[in-house]
Design a protein around this nucleic acid. Structure first.
Lengths: 190, 190
DNA sequence: TATATACTTGAGTGATCACTCAAGAAAGAC
DNA sequence: GTCTTTCTTGAGTGATCACTCAAGTATATA
């Protein structure tokens, strides 16, 4: 007896993620979302409850897809090659709405206000870091990286480098490919 | 015959810089500024013209002091030691309102909207990068770094690492000191 | 002391913010 | 077709945004 919604909820979340990713939390108004998602306020709030709730869903989707993409890459080319390729891949992603990491942007924007979404972004960054640590550990098991290194420390440094790289990639006066190549070269030296 | 203002303009800019640095552009309202600077709207607009104008002054001050501090450090301990010490110093700065770089935060927040302040932050980051390149060049002249490296490329990578480090330093699940130590160790290997 | 020249004050501006809700439209169940 | 349930619509909510301005106040000069 009910009526079905005209929109595809998953697609809406993905589109919202792209807008939030590009413009940030404060930089995205409900007017923006209504226009891009083609939802009137009533439908928007029936579907998602609030701007923050949708942002949270977008954030989760972003992180989940990021981890999945890296894991899939590692399954194909192995942990070491995946870690070496990732810097180049993240700055080349042509379909992406921005080069910088959405988790990092969210954290930087909202952490000072102790916003719940900053906390969520922090947790997701931590999970991403754990994923990196896993790959470093695997690369040690396959003998590609010397066992003397602490995989957690490698992951921490690697993630920090990626965050810097991705922010640098938004600048026109920086050749991010050179940085990415240098990061990959450093991994080979481990 | 005129009356003198009750405030110290330079001090006001420094205090505004700290608020903007911590809370970002959209995250700082005029109410915030009026409260922290103890200025009523009339005085505020007589003194600075607009929120954006004050933000611009704060940004310039931030960058100018950052460059000056690094140059002074290099004069004391030499270019190589300055470059090695900087990562630790920026994350230890106890009086600072935030660990992350204000230029990077501004750029990340406002670049998508082509805001004038993002452009200004970009230019200032570029000047900072040039300062890093100078130091790498000097370190090559003193023989501390092999002359085969391109100082501009080293500066680019170094700045990218610093941006990542400083963002990481805001996280509670990351030991930024370890990252800083690793960055310094890598400089020694050049 | 008188006057001219700022600076300070704070109520008030229109615009935009996230969000609400009542009314109308559409689709499955009977 | 009729009913029930849900979705869609969009005008409207109070709050907050950056900002204005006229009136009041303080000070240096004459």
């Amino acid at each position: 007896m009910p009526r079905k919604p005209e929109y595809d909820r998953d697609d809406l979340i993905a589109r919202a993620r792209d807008i939030f990713w590009r413009q940030g939390w404060a930089g995205t108004s409900l007017k923006d979302l209504e226009r891009e998602l083609k939802l009137k306020p009533g439908s928007f709030y029936a579907a998602f409850g609030s701007k923050d709730a949708l942002y949270g869903l977008a954030l989760d989707r972003y992180a989940q897809e990021g981890v999945a993409r890296l894991r899939a890459l590692a399954d194909r080319v192995g942990p070491l090659e995946a870690l070496k390729a990732q810097p180049r891949l993240v700055i080349e992603a042509s379909g992406a709405p921005a080069k910088a990491c959405m988790l990092a942007k969210t954290y930087a924007e909202l952490q000072a206000k102790d916003h719940e979404l900053a906390g969520r972004a922090g947790v997701l960054m931590s999970e991403m870091k754990a994923c990196f640590a896993d790959l470093f550990r695997q690369a040690q098991e396959t003998g590609d990286i010397a066992p003397s290194h602490d995989p957690n420390r490698l992951a921490m440094r690697y993630q920090s480098e990626l965050l810097g790289l991705r922010l640098s990639a938004e600048r026109s006066d920086v050749d991010a490919h050179e940085i990415a190549a240098d990061i990959a070269a450093d991994i080979d030296r481990l």
